[in-house]
């Protein structure tokens, strides 16, 4: 068992690494961060935790993640081609549960997107469920709780 400081450093490094991959559109490497059973979730209802039983903005299993990445990479999606850059800031990382099998952490994220010359901002709380493996931490679940999840969002052709 690591000390809290060591674990916090390891989780913070992982979250920063994931953010860097997504901002630099290294989607194939991002896919390799996941366990096979992992779920990427962007809920519409911030009070809901039964995600399978609820309509979400995204609820991606491994197949859907692969398809989402393919859509962003294969040059067939006009909105994906038009996306400029994203820059996300992550901070306020806190370990909520430090088990041997799973580590649960929460952080603040602000994603900025430049789209057709206009800046769009997405503040969110992000909850990570991470699985320690021989190859380091893997994503078992990532829940992106957008501050304006139940409002009228702009369309999204990137990955939070």
């Amino acid at each position: 068992m690591k000390s809290n400081t060591q674990l916090l450093a390891q989780v913070t490094e992982f979250i920063g690494y994931e953010a860097d991959l997504l901002d630099h559109k290294a989607y194939q490497e991002w896919l390799s961060l996941w366990t096979d059973s992992g779920l990427y979730i962007v809920p519409t209802d911030l009070n809901e935790t039964d995600y399978l039983n609820t309509l979400n903005l995204a609820l991606d299993d491994a197949d859907m993640r692969r398809m989402r990445v393919a859509r962003l990479e294969n040059g067939e999606s006009v909105s994906a081609i038009s996306v400029g850059s994203t820059v996300r800031m992550v901070s306020r990382v806190r370990i909520l549960e430090a088990g041997d099998d799973l580590v649960i952490a929460r952080c603040a994220m602000t994603l900025n997107e430049l789209r057709h010359g206009k800046l769009v901002t997405y503040p969110a709380n992000v909850e990570y469920t991470l699985k320690p493996t021989a190859e380091g931490l893997k994503l078992e679940q990532k829940v992106v709780k957008l501050l304006h999840a139940d409002g009228f969002l702009r369309t999204v052709s990137f990955i939070f």
Binding site: L57, A58, S79, S82, R154, T155
Partner: peptide, 25 residues
């Protein structure tokens, strides 16, 4: 109902595989 919601998420809404391209057009 779960299948119906997953199919909806696949194409519809701001993060679906269809709507963002419509929105762009």
């Amino acid at each position: 109902n779960h299948k119906r919601m997953r199919l909806h998420e696949h194409f519809q809404g701001p993060m679906g595989f269809g709507t963002p391209d419509d929105g762009e057009a």
